[in-house]
């Protein structure tokens, strides 16, 4: 330490002291609550804690039980399906909506409000709304049948094989509005001159979007990606409101497994093991990406 304080140079530690002091509460929160809580959870996932945490270590028992539980496997599969499709469709739909909105249409404000409105609703409300919409007796199926198409069947929430798509529909309805707004902001950030130049060169519009505009919108895409991805991992309330995991275990998700085992089964150890696995999954995806995204830039 003494070496770094070379005579004549300002002390690195004292530089911007005010802002550093201002940061202390946030740093403490991050260290104690986020990091500390995480480490504590990981450590206690190796114990046989029941209703209350207790430090009797049992090795990997909780993890063995976790991966032997069919409900956990179903949860992981559901999250994978939901995650991949949600990512693709919300980016796709969001971008297309934004691109259409960017064509200097009339009533843009009205449309923007309409599309963004679902985002103002919580997942619980969204889930309940879509539970009714997809209810076979009162929802879409009931309406179509009452119009005369008697054999029409559309009841994803009561069919174990496709229930996760019923949840996906609700998730997309809620989330694409925000993606659209972010994309629209990104599109507005593109200089008019670039469009003019492309038009002079005779490049068709779709090509301009794909090869010029989208690469220029990279920061916007990354922000959106992070927002969507974090929404996917914490998927819980939507499922609880729409199906509460049913029919059977068909729409279970990892976060719900964690909650159910921690609080309903009074088995903290099992819940901690499951949440540690969730953390690990996120880390496996995020760490290499963060390294490429932020670590690589320094060397350029």
């Amino acid at each position: 330490m003494a070496k770094s304080v070379a005579p004549g140079r300002p002390n690195q530690f004292l530089r911007n002291l005010n802002s550093k002091i201002a940061c202390i509460p946030m740093m403490l929160t991050a260290l104690v609550i986020f990091l500390g809580g995480t480490v504590w959870t990981v450590i206690y996932s190796f114990t046989n804690s029941k209703l209350l945490p207790r430090a009797t270590f049992v090795g990997f028992d909780q993890y063995e039980r976790l991966w032997a539980a069919s409900r956990w496997i179903i949860s992981i599969q559901n999250l994978a399906i939901y995650g991949v499709l949600c990512l693709i469709f919300s980016l796709l739909i969001g971008f297309v909506l934004a691109a259409l909105m960017d064509q200097k249409i009339r009533f843009e404000n009205t449309f923007r409000t309409i599309f963004l409105y679902p985002f103002a609703l919580s997942f619980i409300v969204t889930g309940l709304v879509w539970q009714w919409v997809l209810n076979p007796e009162y929802g879409v199926q009931g309406v179509v049948r009452s119009l005369g198409w008697e054999s029409f069947t559309f009841d994803p929430l009561y069919t174990p094989e496709i229930v996760i798509y019923g949840i996906l529909i609700a998730g997309l309805w809620q989330g694409t509005g925000l993606v659209m707004c972010l994309m629209l902001a990104g599109l507005r950030g593109i200089d008019e001159d670039i469009w003019k130049a492309a038009r002079v060169d005779g490049i068709p519009m779709w090509k301009t979007y794909i090869f010029i505009v989208i690469p220029m919108m990279r920061p916007v895409f990354i922000t959106t990606l992070v927002l969507i991805a974090s929404g996917i991992v914490k998927l819980y309330d939507l499922v609880v409101a729409q199906t509460s995991g049913g029919p059977g275990n068909a729409s279970e998700v990892p976060a719900k497994y964690v909650y159910d085992y921690m609080f309903q089964a009074q088995n903290l150890g099992q819940g901690f093991a499951a949440s540690t696995m969730m953390l690990l999954t996120v880390a496996i995806i995020v760490v290499p990406w963060a390294y490429l995204e932020f670590g690589g830039r320094k060397r350029v």
Binding site: A69, G248, A265
Partner: peptide, 18 residues
């Protein structure tokens, strides 16, 4: 225990719905 009961619930709700 509540833990075993929950595991049983998981099994039965899967059994009855699939």
């Amino acid at each position: 225990s509540a833990d075993t009961q929950k595991q049983k619930e998981d099994l039965m709700s899967e059994f009855f719905n699939t």
